[in-house]
Computed example of a mutant assay.
Amino acid sequence: MTDSIINFYDELAEDYHLIFIDWHESIARQSEVLHNIIQSKLNLSCTDIIRILDCSCGIGTQAIGLANYGYNVTATDLSAVSVKRAIKEAANFGVKITFGVADFRTLHTDVSGIFNIVLSADNAIPHLISDEDLYQAFHNMHAKLDQNGLLIVTIRDYDAMVKKQITSTKPNVFDNGNRMAFQIYDWAQDGKTYTVHQFIMQRMNTGWKTKQYSTLYRAWLREELNKIMQATGFVNVEWHFPSQTGYYQPILTARKVE
């Protein structure tokens, strides 16, 4: 399972920004929403140094934006190739971020320090297929938070996806029709897991060039996530939907209280 995920993101790292209309604009927009969530959930003063662990940083989409807000950001990912690009992009943006390679399930030993916030964005959690793996991941996230720390997770609306058995996304066409990105979903018979096929197409001088990347996801329902989060010690589990936040995915927040 881990090797297939690593391969997926290692291969996608170079092209990941092509999924967005404008990756730089997405960095700014997403970090604004996440910043507002943080400000509403934590009792902060202007002099507080807030430590964030972005434990599925990819090429840096959220980590860079939050570092721009002045947060002290540590960013890790399972894909060393993605982290390598994130380091380069952070330098391009002129922000200071501590980077590393780590697994959700071993954060307690892979990452030093304790944080006010642990973040996992962009539907990364559903790469964990089994209840045991998800429990282990949330247990490790819980361990990296200080008392009253905040967990933030963004994830697809799987309750809606499973109900409708959605099999694809609409093609997003960019750059005056010269670039296109879309996904195809192949559902397993049990309706709980699916393989996503990410397509990126670009018009070249010689014609269209198509790249395709595939990986497996678990369609975690909200009730399932709530149950496992509570079992690992999280409280005040809340869901914030795009209609409320303007974010492109539902946002899940929870607190660590000891």
Rank of each mutant, 00 (worst) to 15 (best):
L34N: 02
F104K: 02
H142G: 01
R179L: 00
L151V: 08
Y185S: 02
S168L: 02
E132G: 01
E25Y: 10
Y248S: 07
V81S: 11
A28G: 05
Y213R: 03
A188K: 10
N236F: 14
I152Q: 03
K256R: 14
F99L: 08
A28T: 13
N116Q: 11
D103M: 04
G207Y: 10
G58P: 03
T169S: 15
I38V: 10
L150R: 02
V81L: 10
G177S: 07
I49R: 14
K192A: 06
I251A: 01
I87Y: 12
G113F: 11
R51D: 13
W220I: 06
C55F: 06
K192I: 01
A124E: 01
T210G: 11
N176S: 14
L145Q: 03
Y69M: 04
E11H: 13
S112L: 09
A90M: 04
I52E: 04
M201I: 12
Y135Q: 04
N172M: 14
R179T: 05
K84T: 07
P242Y: 12
D190K: 01
G246W: 08
Q212C: 15
P126S: 07
F8A: 09
G246C: 05
R29N: 11
Y185N: 02
G191A: 09
K170G: 10
R255Q: 13
T61A: 09
Q30K: 11
D190F: 00
Y194I: 01
T2R: 11
F104A: 02
A90F: 02
L66T: 01
L119M: 13
G60R: 03
N43T: 12
A91V: 09
D146Y: 06
T154G: 04
R218Q: 13
M201W: 08
Y185K: 03
Q202R: 15
N72Q: 13
T106M: 10
N205R: 13
A254D: 00
F115K: 10
L134A: 09
D190H: 05
E89K: 08
V95L: 08
H139R: 11
I97D: 00
N205M: 09
Y158H: 07
I97L: 06
N43Q: 14
D103T: 04
K170V: 14
Q147V: 00
A188S: 13
D146K: 13
S243R: 13
Q249A: 05
N92Q: 14
I21E: 15
Y9L: 14
T193R: 04
V173R: 07
Y185W: 15
P126Y: 05
K211A: 12
L78K: 01
A121N: 05
I114Y: 13
A254H: 00
S56G: 15
H139C: 10
